[in-house]
Design a protein around this nucleic acid. Structure first.
Lengths: 315, 315
DNA sequence: GGATGCGGTGCTCAGATGAGCGCCGCGCTC
DNA sequence: GAGCGCGGCGCTCATCTGAGCACCGCATCC
């Protein structure tokens, strides 16, 4: 006896109303007048149109950013910025390039002339530097000593100088290795005028960019450059991740290490005092390290890719 | 120097705001509070999201009705109802079934117990009757005499009786042919109590359903049943279409014919007095006839299919 | 150095909108 | 036939929203 839930004429009317409202931008009052309905009726038709799936609204970005994952990541860890690059790739070099490019975009967006930019060394940071377009004259501060990689063209010094050149700002850089053989040498190096001058700028740094290492072979340049004894020692201390020479346990607690004392880099306290540290993890295996970094509270921004973001969130 | 038009962080923010607004149904004020923005900023972000294509709204019905064409047809001809069945088919039998089913749905939707339903004979009307689900006890009035087709199981009488049975209402039907050999016989037949009783109900008919014929071979049961002389005579009078025995020129003007006087059917005036006549044209070739019917002003509703609707509108 | 224009922001105020409520008609039950 | 429950409708009133405007900072140009 009942006509079906909604008849065809109803469907057509609803669709017409929905079109006028959602696509033509008319007000419900106008539509009500036009169709000879009450504005309440129009509102109910529109509700029905939404509920029945006649009107479908989707939010999608085709510029290579997964906006949904980005927002979830940002909200899950209370971050200031999260960018998840949408790429099905799983080649590390390609991922790094994508993340670097997105980080360059983010930096260009959020950096103002009042900012002071700190850069740790990481291959992703180097990729970012290469993709960077001119910034408004921002000073750039080197946060870590240089690590000479056989395959890497850029050292931390190069990156800082390149970025400063692009920004037209001052480059606070120094020539020193990332790690030395004993704490005394490290302390001595930090006293060097050049190094001391750069590190003296750290308290004024407002944004920093760093990579994230996982304390496993091939997942951290620091790990790979360390001695077998250091590798084992840190593993036994429960080190899971490193951010610019700051070591973290799996749940994000800073882990004091003897190795850190032999490194030319910033301390946990210095890092914590930087208003926004942006990290650039990539590669699905680094999920535990990324999670540790996000849990540490040291990080205010992240640029990564879909697979890793999902892995971090699905825990 | 300018960062690109919108940076990645901006995109993520905009998408989050759009999600909250369009998908979660929050008000702009709530969103502004949540994100620490002014409500104006939220409104502008949403505008930008719409403009940039980040938010896409589409209105689509997957129930076999082309809502867009339906509405265009309704508006173009000022109809009360237009239903365009979305089918890529071009087989006449299949089209007729689809149109019939949709017409049954429309009828079930718009018929009330206060209505009086008139039915002309047409194969599509017969298809509709077969698809009809129970109606609220509506009286049904036969509007045309019977035409015996070799392949048609239903005559106009059958259709009326079936529909009345389904509705539980009274069937005002009669046994008489659609056309006879001379006007005097037709007049005499109309005086028959049974026939006169049915036609006496015509002024109270509030909705009628009829087919549309194109005055060409194979496009009108009346044409095909007519003598060669009649076919030629009407062609020379400029007859393009017929609706339930009412003949129309290509621009929808009623054409008085001698043939009409030999038919047991309603007059133009009677048809015009019916508040809503729903026609069921199908088959792309009938476009001129459908157009004529819609232009005539006699028609208040149409049920047809995509190809024909498009052909009618693209003129 | 001051005038000018432009993009981005948030204000006012009128008009649009939503939540909740009461009314009405219908079908069902007893 | 009276009572009941339900769904659809439109009202009120508080809130939300949009159009237009004024303001600010910045860059540009005489």
């Amino acid at each position: 006896m009942a006509p079906q839930d909604t008849g065809p004429a109803q469907v057509v009317l609803t669709a017409s109303v929905a079109r006028r409202y959602y696509l033509d931008g008319r007000s419900k009052v106008e539509i009500a007048d036009e169709f000879g309905l009450s504005r309440f009726k129009v509102a109910r038709l529109l509700d029905a149109a939404r509920a029945s799936g006649l009107v479908r609204i989707e939010i999608r970005h085709d510029g290579g950013i997964d906006v949904d994952l980005s927002a979830r990541l940002r909200d899950a860890f209370g971050l200031q910025h999260a960018i998840v690059v949408d790429t099905p790739d799983d080649d590390l070099v390609s991922l790094r390039e994508h993340v670097g490019r997105a980080a360059a975009g983010l930096l260009a967006e959020i950096i103002t002339p009042q900012d002071v930019l700190g850069l740790a060394w990481a291959r992703a940071v180097s990729a970012m530097a290469r993709a960077l377009r001119p910034l408004p004259g921002t000073p750039v501060v080197q946060l870590t000593g240089a690590l000479s990689l056989p395959d890497g063209p850029d050292t931390s010094v190069d990156v800082v100088r390149d970025v400063a050149a692009a920004s037209g700002g001052v480059a606070h850089c120094f020539y020193a290795p990332l790690t030395v053989s004993d704490a005394a040498t490290a302390r001595a190096l930090r006293q060097q005028p050049e190094v001391a001058r750069a590190f003296g700028q750290v308290p004024s740094v407002t944004r920093a960019v760093a990579g994230v290492g996982l304390w496993e072979p091939g997942q951290s340049t620091i790990h790979d450059a360390a001695s077998e004894a250091d590798r084992r020692a840190l593993r036994e201390l429960g080190v899971c991740a490193d951010i610019s020479g700051v070591f973290l346990s799996a749940d994000g607690e800073p882990v004091p290490t003897e190795l850190a004392e032999r490194m030319i880099t910033i301390s946990v306290e210095e890092m914590r005092s930087i208003p926004e540290v942006v990290v650039l993890p990539y590669g699905i295996r680094k999920a535990p390290a990324a999670r540790a970094a996000l849990r540490s509270g040291l990080v205010g921004g992240i640029v990564t890719h879909t697979a890793l973001a999902r892995a971090v969130l699905d825990t």
